[in-house]
Design a protein around this nucleic acid. Structure first.
Lengths: 226, 226
DNA sequence: TGATTTTTGTACTGTCTTGCATATTATATC
DNA sequence: GATATAATATGCAAGACAGTACAAAAATCA
């Protein structure tokens, strides 16, 4: 074989020109549909037929793309975590007062938990903890990671707020973080019982007041609602 | 038929002398076994064969005694609530300082959540909220009731403590109760992820400190640990 | 055009599932 | 002892379930 121009130099990230028959589905949206189902029904109550119908893929394609049901569940959970992290990340990063940051985080959580065509679906970490986590070590490990990721994110919040003087010296960021996580968990559970959004928001407000201290909420002129 | 002595006057509460073949099971213990299974595995992941084996009853007997699987689940849940209520009731009734009462309640909850031969099983209300509550209105109603029963019990606690002067006038019993419930929920979830008891107790301690106010925990000479 | 590769669509297997039908056993009453 | 009653034990039927085999289809490559 003589030296030939070897074609495009394998940029390969745009369109790698796959060889065989093209996929009739987009893996990302299919995984999203599977996640939707698992979130509402849980692992055991969701059949492969359900998943096949929801994704538009038939079972062999499901297996080919994601593996068996358990693997699909795990990938769905990872996807859920990625999505949740993505929707929170800028609230954690941006510079803002503690109260405002907490409000943003809880509002974001509520949006996730209350979304769903057939009704609120709560938090997938909580759903998984309440079902597969007891019997499946791998899944349990993922759940543990999910729980502690939230704890750590909140703890960081409170640590930074304390450094900025928004919290008294006696405040313990770890304890406050656990309280914040507990608030997340309680609204996750209640949302699945169809507790109305207003009540959940009231719970969040009460918790925030406790965490930042009631006095700091009485700061004058915070912009809106004159 | 002539007037006859009509036999024993239907006291009927000790041994009603049932007519046919005697039961080979005790309904209460059988229901307890069913509850154990449902608590760990959830509704969908528990088969009637599992239940049959655990209770020692074969399926026709199960149906005869408790109805179909869903009815058995509902009766199991009611049993769980009754048990939980019974184990808490005296802590709620007895006269004691707020902190001590809260410690008692949370200790009791931890015992329930961490019990189980194969590992901790958490709170059945939470498990049910995370699974059947979304799709089954009747079960959802029971879960809602369970959640609000806890809220109300805690609110009563804090209201009484406030009346006795254990809490400042600014304290809101409802908000404190929601925080206490949130703490219960978070340990219920974490226990299923096998978070060790020590960590759960630390969470409880932090929450109690927040709720009763740290200063009141620094009361002198509370007995132990000189 | 023909070969190769990858995915799709259909159908199949064996197992598990729920609920029930039927027959059997054990007790109380007459 | 005969009869009625209530439970047990066995096993069946219809369907759901997870996972796979196999052939047809649709694309690239030569």
């Amino acid at each position: 074989m003589v030296q030939k121009s070897k074609g495009p130099p394998a940029v390969a990230s745009e369109q790698p020109k796959r060889r065989g028959r093209p996929r009739a589905y987009e893996p990302d949206v299919a995984l999203g549909k599977a996640l939707d189902l698992f979130r509402t029904q849980g692992f055991a109550a969701t059949s492969l037929d359900d998943l096949s119908e929801a994704t538009g893929m038939n079972r062999p394609s499901l297996y080919g793309a994601f593996g068996d049901k358990r693997e699909l569940y795990i990938k769905s959970y990872q996807r859920y975590r990625d999505d949740a992290r993505a929707s929170m990340t800028e609230i954690f990063r941006e510079e803002m007062p503690l109260r405002q940051r907490l409000e943003g985080i809880f509002a974001c959580a509520l949006n996730i938990y209350l979304s769903g065509e057939t009704g609120p679906r709560g938090c997938f970490t909580v759903v998984t903890a309440a079902s597969e986590a007891v019997s499946d070590p791998d899944i349990r490990a993922m759940v543990l990671e999910g729980l502690s990721e939230l704890d750590k994110a909140f703890a960081n919040c409170f640590r930074r707020a304390k450094e900025k003087g928004e919290l008294p010296e006696t405040a313990d960021p770890t304890v406050l973080a656990q309280l914040a996580s507990a608030t997340v968990h309680t609204i996750a559970i209640r949302s699945r019982a169809r507790v109305p959004r207003k009540e959940l928001e009231a719970i969040v407000k009460g918790a925030i007041d406790m965490m930042v201290g009631l006095e700091s909420s009485r700061r004058p002129g915070d912009g809106r609602d004159p």
